[in-house]
Structure formats: C-alpha cells, structure tokens
Amino acid sequence: MGTPLGDFIRAKRDSTQPESLGLPDHGRRRSPGLRRSDLAVRAGISVEYLTRLEQGRDRNPSVAVVNALADALSLDPSERNHLRYLAKITGGECSAHSQPAPPRHDVRPSVRETLRLLEPGIAMVTNRLGDVLDRTSGYELVMDGSGLLDAAAPNLTRYVFTHPRARTFFADWGDVADEQAFDLWLGPSVEISEWFTAELAPVAGPDFTQRLNRHVVPQRGVLRLNHPSGCELRLLRETLELSADGQQLVVFLPADDRTAEVVDRLRVPPQGVLRAIS
C-alpha cells in the first residue's frame, strides 16, 4: 500500500521531463517522466531505496534524504514544504499516540469582529476541509446564485466536486478543484482528512480521488467567477492563517476596475425593491 509521500514522489517524477534537468533523453519509456534510476542518481540514493519509498515500504526517510529528493526534483519552495510535510505525516509523527481533535467549527469573537470591520468587503472564514464558517455580506453577494450558500452548513470542497453549478461558476474549475483537494492534506490531522475523504469520495468520484493523490501544489492565482449576473469577476485572494484555530480568513479583492464596478453594482438593490432599514 502506498503512502502520501510515495505518491507525491512518484507523481513529481512522472511529471518531470529529463531535458528540464539537463539529462539526456533515453528514447521511449514505459512510463512518462523521469526514470527512477536517474532520480536515484541525482538524489544520491539507491534505486532499491527509492522504490521502497515510492511503494510505501519505507516510511521514515531522513531529513537529508528528503532534502536530496527535493533538490533532485528541482522542487519550488511550496513543493519542498509539502514534501517535508508528507514525510512527517507518513512517518507517523503527527499525534500518532493521541486521539486527534476534530476541526473547529466555532469562530472566535475577535475574528467575527474582524469580519464586521471588513464590511462591505468580500471575506470569509474557512478551514482546510472547506467549511464556510462565517462570511461578510459582500461574500454572500458574490456567491449569490452559485448554490454554495444554499446548504445549511456550506462546504466549498463538497460544492466544487458535487454541485452541478460549480463547473460553470468557477471559470477555472480544474485549478479550484486542485486547491480544495490539496488543502485536505493540510487539515488538523491525517485522520480527519481521511474521514472527510471517506464521506466525500463516494459522491465526488474519480475527479476528487485522482486530484487528492496527485498532490498538485496549487498556484492560487486570480479567481475567475462566472457570476449569475452575466459578468465575469476576477478576484485576488489574501489569506490570513489563524493557526491556533486551524482556520483561515480569506479576503477577496477585485483584480481589475471592471470587477470593482460589477461588485459595486451588486451592492445596490434593484430599483423598485424596498429595503428594510433598522
């Protein structure tokens, strides 16, 4: 049985072309990407040991080996951090002897006050599982008509992979799907992520499970939404990590003047509609 660490190494090896590392092209290969022998030589380890790592038969590589593999695969900083994280959880160092705490669903009062101060901006509080725990009225306006907030307990990951409107609402659905799948690995514990996977996988299908096991480190570029109003919104995202809570405060900012104008229009109620004033 494989491990997250082995899956990631194999996925990166398969997606790395020898020419990109200055290695000769040996002609047709049975599998795409970098040969196992080439990676082993670059990392200074044996092919047998690399095979054991990829197949999950060795779960405790040293820090030196992990760093050597990162160098050999020319990983960028985000990918290096993910490789180290996977080495840690694969080695069983993540609270293996204690029952993991479930992810928090309550939002601290000071965080709620921060959201209030961000009004009428576009912001939400979420966790690595994708639960939308709190949001501003601006976020509700932008997501209105998408179907995300129709659920009693909105979950962005479940929405992306199972809701019929998601693939249309997110102009770059594949990128967003990669982000949501990747974030499950960064949840409060592997056990919680596995529990959530067991709940989601039966209804999300192979699109979800394949992305989860590919370990694609997302770039998190401009978020493009096909808003039900007929306009495309382009939003930048700034994320504040609430590490103690296992949550994130995400603020969405218009990426261009056109998006800013559309968001301003969304905030103005249509003529003829009465608005309650307290």
Rank of each mutant, 00 (worst) to 15 (best):
H105K: 06
S74M: 10
E113R: 07
L75G: 02
S98W: 12
E48V: 11
R116N: 13
A68M: 03
A96H: 11
R52A: 06
E48P: 01
R42H: 04
N67E: 15
R112L: 15
A96C: 07
P102T: 12
S110G: 04
D58C: 09
L75Q: 05
H105L: 11
R52E: 10
S46T: 07
V107N: 08
C94Y: 10
A87N: 05
Y85L: 14
A64Y: 11
R116L: 08
L69S: 02
V41I: 15
A64H: 07
I45T: 12
R112S: 13
H97R: 14
I89V: 15
D38F: 08
D106W: 01
E113D: 15
L39R: 00
Q99T: 14
N60T: 15
R104V: 03
N60Y: 09
E113P: 00
S78T: 11
S62F: 10
G92R: 05
E93V: 05
A43F: 12
L115G: 01
N67Q: 15
S46G: 14
E54S: 05
P100V: 02
S95I: 07
V107Y: 06
R59V: 08
S95N: 14
N81P: 00
L115D: 00
Q55C: 06
P109T: 05
S62V: 09
D76F: 04
E79L: 06
V47Q: 07
A70R: 03
R104T: 08
S62E: 11
R108Q: 15
H105G: 01
I45N: 00
S62W: 07
P109A: 13
R52W: 14
L53P: 01
R84L: 14
T51N: 07
H105N: 04
Y85K: 02
S98A: 15
H97D: 11
S46Y: 04
D58H: 12
D76L: 12
D38M: 07
A40N: 01
Q55T: 09
I45C: 12
S98M: 14
L115K: 01
L83P: 01
P102N: 11
V41R: 13
V111L: 05
L69M: 09
A101K: 13
P109H: 12
N81F: 08
I45S: 03
L39A: 05
N81S: 13
Q99I: 09
L83M: 13
S98G: 07
P77I: 10
G56A: 12
Y49P: 01
R116V: 14
A68K: 08
S110Y: 09
L69W: 02
G91I: 11
N81Q: 15
Y49A: 10
E54V: 02
V63Y: 04
I89H: 02
P100Y: 01
G56R: 11
V65W: 08
D76N: 15
V65C: 03
P61N: 02
L50M: 09
L118R: 13
T114Q: 05
S110N: 06
Q99V: 12
S98T: 15
I89Y: 01
P100I: 02
V41E: 11
R57P: 00
R52Y: 13
G92T: 09
I89D: 03
P100D: 04
R80P: 00
R116P: 06
V111M: 06
